[in-house]
Design a protein around this nucleic acid. Structure first.
Lengths: 233, 233
DNA sequence: CATGAATCGTAAACGGCGTATACTGTTTAC
DNA sequence: GTAAACAGTATACGCCGTTTACGATTCATG
């Protein structure tokens, strides 16, 4: 006998339907056009009914953000998982490629989680930061795996004492085992991937380079080389 | 006798006052909270009066975006101009530092030009793209200066035929004289600077590394080295 | 099975938003 | 001096998020 009653299942389904409808509206009219009244109308209910499921619009947005992060993280993890475990460089390339692909395929959700497109909405950091780190964990765990396997190329990691000390403390707190300078390179790489995707999405890069894909891939390959990860010949 | 009448001067002044008031509101309540009624109230007029100066809210936003790009470009250019012309690496470092500093000091304007924080507003690419390129031109012209001066370190530029061909065509169209692989590295670097600043502004990096400044500087120095630009010893 | 409670939804309203229209003074130019 | 151009207001429309008061349904329990 299931612990969930009929009513609870119904309630959860309606909550999901609200989020699905919201996602559909965002995909069509952009994240900024998210409107409780429009969602309700598309569902055939009235706007105040949504308040039975979310205390206010910001709570709905936060739920959508968490979902989006998890979808992004799942896409990255799935792409990485499809590569043989000992091909660390290729795993990183697959993860980075999935990151860009998901972002291009879900531009509204991307700007929802990485921008501030909602008037008056401020993402609660205590909710988002852990989910973000979870989504981006492959970019740290792949180099960690390679490090522990002793499979790192003979790369030399430049030292940055100030930042690296801070980073080392954070790594310990997170239970990650990899050198701080390596993690710093990962963060610099995250910034690069994020920036290139952002510039592509707002249309600044395409007029200059056309298809951004090769530019992005070149940057990631250079990053993989700096990290000392080997790729298939 | 000036070619501008009294009325024209008055009109231009009011237009500037509207934009200044808008900037003050953005700085206080965020770019998304921009409201014609609030601007008008702060100026002691009514909202429809603004329509004498801007055909609609989007036109005002576009004007603010253009102004912001020019302010960002001016900050970058000024920082770069303060460095001796033949210290190409230091000029690049100064420009990159000014880019981050301006962004941190003007977060609302940064998200105004690089995000989509306004409900229903879509930045007109034909207006913004040229202004963006103008603002970022130092990051291309500094390597170009170094290249023409034969002052590039013995760096080896990895080739990416597909993208580089496209880039070379664009460079010719823009009248820029530097190798396509070099320009590609500049764009990858732009993505990195942009991404790191963005992640810092939305609060993802600080909990990991604390002060993002050293991380940013390390990334830019590595980029400068890859570009083959020399820095002061 | 009857009944009281919990739940889900609606209707109406409030204040605020961008914006269109019609109107009134003031300033300018001939 | 007068007619046109201009700057501003008042009003109104249809959106928005949100609150309140109120029905209808569904559930759990005597």
């Amino acid at each position: 006998m299931p612990t969930t009653t009929r009513r609870e299942r119904q309630r959860a389904a309606t909550g999901e339907e609200i989020k699905d409808t919201a996602r559909r509206q965002m995909a069509e009219h952009g994240a900024a056009a998210l409107s409780l009244r429009a969602i309700a109308a598309a569902m055939g209910i009235t706007a105040p009914a949504i308040y039975r499921y979310f205390p206010n619009r910001d709570a709905l947005v936060t739920a959508l953000i968490v979902d989006a992060y998890q979808a992004l993280g799942a896409a990255v993890a799935a792409a990485e998982a499809a590569v043989p475990r000992d091909r660390f460089g290729d795993r990183f390339l697959a993860a980075a490629g999935a990151y860009r692909r998901w972002s291009l395929e879900h531009p509204a959700e991307f700007q929802l989680i990485f921008g501030t497109p909602i008037p008056g909405y401020e993402a609660p950091a205590d909710v988002t930061v852990p989910v973000v780190l979870e989504a981006f964990s492959p970019f740290a765990t792949i180099p960690e795996d390679a490090w522990r396997a002793g499979a790192l190329h003979d790369a030399v990691f430049p030292q940055e004492p100030e930042t690296d000390a801070r980073l080392a403390a954070w790594l310990i707190g997170e239970g990650l085992h990899l050198p701080a300078p390596l993690m710093r390179l990962v963060l610099e790489g995250w910034g690069q991937m994020h920036g290139l995707v952002t510039l592509e999405l707002i249309g600044q890069l395409p007029p200059v380079v056309g298809d951004v894909g090769p530019l992005y891939d070149a940057a990631v390959r250079a990053l993989v080389a700096r990290l000392g990860l080997r790729v298939a010949p």
